[in-house]
Write a protein that binds this DNA or RNA. Structure first.
Lengths: 196, 196
DNA sequence: TCGACTTTTGACACACCGTGTCATAACCTG
DNA sequence: CAGGTTATGACACGGTGTGTCAAAAGTCGA
């Protein structure tokens, strides 16, 4: 979370960081649009070369998912830690909104991110892989709880429902940003998850 | 469906057609992989220039959605024609599988298509736009039936549920291709659509 | 202080995607 | 045969993402 448990084994110090690049890039996206911003622009604004950008992110759009590995890992961990007595439906409704929760000071950042994600087609495309990962976590969890494999019909349905609820909650939130995202998320999950 | 109500206003006859290009392209995708197939390869195999390919399809992946406009239009039409007495939940469960229905002789073609769609990341990405359109049709329909706008929470949820069910059914079908896709589709819809 | 090691960086070069432009080919009708 | 119409091919261009390699800028040990 905070600073580096990284062991310093010498070598040239980095000129930038993933988070700094992400901040610079997202600011440019918001300001002049995603497709109107080239990787050259981002690199120049961050004071590094284009090649360096691609060492931090394998795709231009990837800067929007800097937090994603953390969120994904949190979701997986929370489900792993869910008490065996808790029904899987309840566990998902409880953990999914928590995994995506961010402190209030990151709210406008999140809102901008969500708007880019749901509005810009080129960005929406790149979301597919992340969505898949998110979905698979839920599917695997439900399969475990139901003592089946990941080919289980209900588990597959639950996975897709989890993703659908997450996207739906964000879509609704964009238009009603005064409301509480985790709360909305829970309501969508309750509406869409199949019966236990 | 079958041949051309197109008025012939003269001009040079086309060397190829969207369907022929799509067939050639999908065959190459299945044979050697999507990313291992360049547009140059497709064009060469079809006997036209690269530029011509992009006049028929605006993206390499678009060949996989030749049938999409028809399916989308059918879904929209079927919902428009649904009797006002039919509950919206039932109407979606009835019409969505029908709109995606294809004659048996196109089965292997559909199976290949579905496998590419759910397996190859680069293809999955391009699906986002089509999925959005599919989802919006359901959302708009539910909003109409509930006398609300497309910002309605239940309508949004129903839209995402419709898409989730469609994807889930295809995913399940890939692993159990002996079963009936429309039937699976209906079961997923029944499982995921929120209560009326 | 000097040299060996490690890591980050920048400079090129390259394949591919998708777009704009323009001349040419191949059909129609009068 | 002339003029209109449509499809095509050739070419150039900006952008993305990748591979390669030499140079920069630190660390540590002798």
């Amino acid at each position: 979370m905070s600073t580096t448990g990284a062991t310093d084994r010498g070598g040239r110090p980095a000129l930038t960081s993933a988070h700094q690049l992400a901040a610079v890039a997202q600011a440019l996206f918001v300001e002049r649009g995603f497709e109107q911003t080239s990787v050259d622009d981002i690199a120049a604004a961050a004071g590094v070369s284009r090649r360096t950008f691609f060492r931090y992110f394998s795709t231009k759009a990837d800067v929007l998912w800097v937090e994603s590995p953390t969120e994904i890992a949190t979701f997986r961990r929370l489900l792993d830690e869910a008490p065996a007595t808790e029904p899987w439906r309840h566990a998902i409704i409880r953990t999914a909104p928590t995994a995506l929760h961010h402190p209030p000071e990151e709210r406008t950042w999140m809102l901008h991110r969500a708007q880019l994600l749901l509005t810009v087609p080129a960005v929406q495309e790149k979301a597919a892989l992340r969505h898949d990962e998110w979905r698979r976590i839920a599917t695997a969890f439900v399969a475990r709880r139901r003592d089946t494999d990941e080919g289980d019909l209900v588990a597959i349905a639950a996975g897709h429902a989890t993703l659908a609820a997450t996207l739906g909650a964000h879509e609704y939130w964009i238009a009603h940003s005064d409301q509480d995202l985790p709360d909305l998320h829970g309501r969508f999950l309750d509406l869409l998850l199949p019966a236990d």
